[in-house]
Computed example of a mutant assay.
Amino acid sequence: MAGRANRRRGEVEAILGGERRILCLTLGALAELETAFAVDDLASLGARFANGRLKARDLIRIIGAGLRGGGNVFSDEEVAALDIDGGVAGAGRIVSDLLTAAFAAEGEAAATNP
Results as ranks from 00 to 15, higher is better:
6 N>L: 13
48 R>Q: 05
72 N>P: 09
14 A>K: 04
77 E>R: 12
21 R>Y: 13
113 N>I: 05
6 N>G: 10
46 G>V: 11
39 V>A: 03
104 A>K: 05
87 G>I: 06
21 R>F: 10
109 A>D: 09
23 L>F: 03
1 M>Y: 15
54 L>K: 05
27 L>G: 14
41 D>T: 03
40 D>W: 04
51 N>S: 14
108 E>N: 00
51 N>I: 15
54 L>A: 11
2 A>V: 07
87 G>Y: 00
46 G>H: 13
1 M>F: 12
49 F>H: 13
114 P>R: 02
102 A>M: 08
36 A>T: 11
39 V>I: 09
108 E>Y: 03
1 M>V: 14
29 A>M: 06
105 A>W: 01
81 A>L: 10
5 A>Y: 02
8 R>Y: 14
74 F>K: 10
22 I>T: 04
69 G>N: 01
102 A>S: 07
78 E>G: 13
27 L>P: 10
54 L>Q: 12
94 I>F: 05
15 I>N: 10
85 D>P: 09
26 T>W: 01
50 A>T: 13
16 L>C: 13
55 K>L: 13
113 N>F: 14
33 L>E: 06
43 A>Q: 04
114 P>S: 12
83 D>M: 15
39 V>T: 09
28 G>L: 02
27 L>Q: 12
34 E>Q: 15
39 V>Q: 01
28 G>Q: 08
29 A>Q: 00
1 M>A: 15
93 R>M: 11
98 L>N: 06
8 R>G: 14
24 C>P: 00
66 G>W: 07
45 L>V: 13
3 G>E: 12
93 R>N: 12
39 V>F: 03
71 G>S: 07
65 A>M: 00
103 F>A: 03
107 G>A: 09
89 A>T: 07
56 A>E: 11
22 I>S: 04
35 T>F: 09
112 T>L: 15
83 D>H: 13
68 R>Y: 02
61 R>D: 03
88 V>A: 10
64 G>D: 03
69 G>L: 02
101 A>W: 01
91 A>P: 00
38 A>L: 15
62 I>M: 08
55 K>F: 10
81 A>K: 12
